[in-house]
Computed example of a mutant assay.
Amino acid sequence: MARAGIAATPAGRPVLSLDLWWIPRGMVLGLIAFVIFGPLANLVLWTVAERWYFPHALPLDYGFSYWGRVFAARGNAMDSLANSLIVAGLTVVVALALAIPAGYALARLRLPFRAAILIAFLIPQAFPNLTVYVNVARLFYQLGLNGTIPGVVLVHVTHGLVYAVWIATAAFSAIDAELEEAARSIGAGALRAFLDVTLPLAAPGLLASAIFVFLESLDEFTGSYFVGAPDVNMLPLLLYTAGAGGNYQVASITALLLLIPSIGFMLVVERFLKSDVLSKVGR
C-alpha cells in the first residue's frame, strides 16, 4: 500500500511525502492477474467469435451461431456431456464405495505397512499414462470392456482412488475416536456408531473427496481416448477433436463447459475441506 505523510523541511515548512513502492507492487499484481485471467478472457472471446483472424486483436464479428452448432441435434456435445456426467457419477460411487471402508481402516486400525498402503494408491500417477493405457486398452479389448462405459469407469476409478482414499483417511483421522467409544458405551453397536456418529462428522471431507474424483473423471482424456473412443464420446475427446481440427470456437465452448463445474465445485471444496482435515492428509 502507498504510504503518505507530512515531513518537515529544515525551514520548518511541511512537505507531502509519498511512498512509491505501490508502483512495482501494482505492476507485479497486474502481471499475475494477466497470466491467470488472460487465457480465460481469450477463451470467452472465442466462444462468441464469429470471425477472428490475424492480425486483428479482437474478433471482427460476435454471435452465438457456434453455440447452436455445438448443441444441435446432429452435434455430439449433448451425448458427450451426458456420457461425461454418467461416467463421472459412476466413478464417484465406485471410488467412495472403496474409499470409505479403506479410509476408515487406515485411520482407525493399526495396520502394518500403513504408509506403504497409502503410497500404493499413488502408483497409477507414477507411470506415464500413455504406455499404461495402451496396455489397459489391449486387456480390456480381450475382456469386452473396450468401448464401454463400465470400462471407462474402471479406468477413471484407478486415477480418482488416490484422492478418495487419502482424503477419506484424513477425514476419519480428524474425528476423535472417543466419540465412537462414547456411543458404544451407551449400547450402540460398531456399525450403528459408525453410521450415526463417525460418518456424519466425516461427511464434509467425503463430499470434498467426491468432488475431487468427479472433477478428475470429468477432465480425464488419455484413459477415455484409449478405452472409450470412438464408442463412448466424452467432452475431453470432443475438445481434442475440435482443437486438432482448428475449430477453436467449438473447442472453446467445450472447454467452458468443463471449466464451469470445476470452478463451482472447487468453491465447494474450499468451504467444506477444513484445515484440520488437510493437516491429516498422508499422516
Rank of each mutant, 00 (worst) to 15 (best):
R184H: 07
R138L: 15
L98G: 04
L235D: 05
P128C: 03
N135K: 13
A137Q: 01
A168F: 07
L96D: 03
Y163H: 07
P101F: 09
A177N: 02
V155R: 01
R114E: 09
V152P: 01
H156Y: 13
F214Q: 01
F194N: 07
A193M: 10
I123V: 13
R184Y: 03
V152T: 05
R110T: 15
V197M: 09
P236C: 03
Q142A: 14
L207A: 14
G103V: 05
L191C: 13
R184Q: 12
F113T: 12
G223D: 03
L179T: 11
V153Q: 03
D196L: 12
L111N: 11
L145Y: 07
A115G: 15
V162Y: 02
G160M: 06
Y163V: 10
I119T: 14
N135H: 09
L154I: 14
R192S: 13
L179I: 06
I100Q: 02
G187I: 06
V153W: 02
Y104F: 14
A102S: 12
L109R: 15
M234G: 08
A182R: 09
F226Y: 10
T131M: 13
G205H: 01
T131Y: 08
F221T: 00
A97R: 04
L109Q: 12
F221W: 01
R110C: 13
F214R: 02
Y163F: 11
V153H: 00
A208G: 10
V213M: 05
L145Q: 07
L130Q: 01
S217A: 07
F212T: 04
Y225C: 04
I186V: 11
A188N: 11
A208D: 00
P101G: 02
F113V: 13
I119E: 15
D176I: 03
Y141F: 15
F127G: 05
A203P: 08
L207S: 06
A171C: 00
A168H: 01
G144A: 10
V152K: 00
G144F: 04
Y133M: 11
A168Q: 03
Y104I: 14
A115K: 15
E216K: 10
R184N: 07
